[in-house]
Every structure is written in structure tokens, then in C-alpha cells.
């Protein structure tokens, strides 16, 4: 039954989102143009090939976080306003299950935008990203890390009237500091430390270390990159889960 409910929620989410495709197409267009434009300005009129691969991975992470969050929060706000959120709670399934379905739907849109945002510059600027199997784990953790943050935003969106502003604030900080402009290694230590508190930064750091420096998973573990990423992801997930339990009840009471 749980799988049936989950599939129904994802299917519904995809249909609702694709009922209005214009917004998604505009985002795809912006995502392909923004990165190269940004790097062109930062390179003072030239694309710096030494920086492009690292920053491309980071901008992919940013777009995933930004767009999954946007889809998730906008969808929840609209459903709360329309009353379908309340209606969808009257299911034999546990309340977290439809929310997981929403997260996975948002994740599909986030991944689509991130993929386009990375693939188009790769083709246009001839950027090469080497593939290593060891990158799968940090990539997976980066995905979970970003989704945990999306879940946190969703939990806030259930009750907070200023969720739009909060979301803008956090995603702007992520864009500024997660390595999308410059690789984290070039930041001053204090700024790099601050950046690592934000979602996606630790994941991008671990991912780029495996992809471009060939670090193994055991090396990532002993360096502390993986434990920190794991701890950050678990902390985000726990915070999001607790906030969801609290706000879900409040949202239904006020519906």
C-alpha cells in the first residue's frame, strides 16, 4: 500500500507540475545561460578552463537545491491555499509518505534543471568531468543533503508566511558560497568554514575531491570530508523531521 501511495503522489506531482510547463522551460533557459555568463564575467572576459569543472559541479548542486526547493515550496503553498493539502492527509498512509512523494517529485525537477545546467555548458565550453565510481557515494549524499534542506524548507512552508523570503535568502547564500563562483579551495579559511555550514557545500567539496583529485572513499573518510558530510546531512534531516512533525500538526489545525 505504501508504495502505491508513493507512486500516486509522485504521479500526481508530475502531472500538476507539467500542467504549466512554461515556468520550467524558462528556468531551464536561465540555468543554461547563467553559469557561462557568470564565469565569463569572473574571468574578466574569458572562460578560465582551470576553474570551470569545479564550479560546474557546484552550480549543478545549486540548481538542484534551488529548483527542488522552489517546486516543493510553491506546490505546498498552493495546495495549502486550495485545500488539497488537507484533503490529501485523509489517507490510511502515514503523513510523511505523501511528503516523501512530494520531495521525490521536486527532486526530479531539481535533477532535470541541474542536468541541463551542467550539460549545456559542458558542450558549449568543452568542459570535461572525469567519471569515477568513488564519486557515487558523495554524489548520493549531496543529493540527500540537498533534499534534507528542501524538506526543512517544506516544513517551514507549512506555517511560515515569510517562507518565500527565507528561501531566497538561503539559496542566494548557497549560490554565493557553495563554490559556484570560485572553488572552495580559493576561499579564505573563515569563509570556507562558514560556507560548509550551508547545504550542498560539503557534498560538492567531497564530490570534486573524488572527481578531480582522485581521492578514494577511505581517504575522504580519514580526511573528515565524508564524516562531516554525513553528520551535516543527518543533522539537516533530523531538524527537518522534527520541524515537520511540529508544523504539520499546526498546519492542519489552521487549515
Amino acid at each position: 500500500m505504501l508504495l502505491n501511495v508513493l507512486r500516486a503522489e509522485i504521479g500526481k506531482g508530475l502531472r500538476v507540475q507539467l500542467a504549466h510547463p512554461a515556468g520550467h522551460l524558462i528556468t531551464l533557459l536561465i540555468s543554461t545561460m547563467m553559469y557561462l555568463g557568470l564565469q565569463f564575467v569572473l574571468g574578466q572576459g574569458a572562460l578560465r578552463q582551470d576553474l570551470l569543472p569545479h564550479t560546474l559541479v557546484a552550480i549543478g548542486g545549486y540548481w538542484f537545491l534551488q529548483y527542488a526547493g522552489l517546486v516543493m515550496v510553491a506546490d505546498l503553498i498552493e495546495e495549502k491555499r486550495a485545500g488539497t493539502f488537507t484533503q490529501a492527509q485523509m489517507t490510511p498512509a502515514p503523513p510523511w509518505l505523501p511528503m516523501l512523494g512530494r520531495l521525490l517529485t521536486a527532486s526530479i525537477f531539481g535533477l532535470a534543471v541541474a542536468a541541463v545546467a551542467a550539460l549545456v555548458p559542458m558542450m558549449v565550453a568543452g568542459i570535461t568531468i572525469p567519471w569515477r565510481w568513488a564519486a557515487l557515494l558523495p554524489a548520493g549524499l549531496l543529493w540527500v543533503n540537498a533534499l534534507a534542506f528542501t524538506f526543512l524548507l517544506a516544513a517551514l512552508a507549512l506555517v511560515s508566511p515569510v517562507i518565500g523570503a527565507l528561501q531566497s535568502l538561503f539559496t542566494s547564500l548557497v549560490l554565493l558560497l557553495n563554490g559556484s563562483f570560485l572553488p572552495l579551495a580559493l576561499y579564505p579559511d573563515w569563509l570556507a568554514a562558514a560556507a560548509r555550514v550551508l547545504p550542498t557545500t560539503l557534498g560538492i567539496e567531497a564530490l570534486t575531491q573524488t572527481l578531480f583529485e582522485g581521492r578514494t572513499l577511505s581517504r575522504l573518510w580519514t580526511d573528515g570530508a565524508l564524516p562531516w558530510l554525513l553528520a551535516h546531512t543527518l543533522a539537516l534531516t533530523a531538524a527537518a523531521g522534527l520541524l515537520f512533525v511540529r508544523n504539520h500538526r499546526r498546519a492542519l489545525e489552521s487549515s
Binding site: N4, V5, R7, A8, E9, G11, K12, R15, V16, A19, H20, A82, G83, T84, T86, Q87, A88, T91, P92, A93, P98, S255
Partner: peptide
């Protein structure tokens, strides 16, 4: 409240709510 999704068809709504149950 709307109770159902306006951007979906009647058929899609019923399929969704049935599977949600």
C-alpha cells in the same frame, strides 16, 4: 476548499485519490 486538483482532469483526480486510499 477545492478538495480536488483543478489542474488535473476528473479522471486523474479520481485515480490519484483512489490510490491515495
Amino acid at each position: 476548499s477545492r478538495n480536488v486538483y483543478w489542474s488535473l482532469s476528473a479522471w486523474q483526480n479520481l485515480m490519484y485519490f483512489g490510490r491515495l486510499k
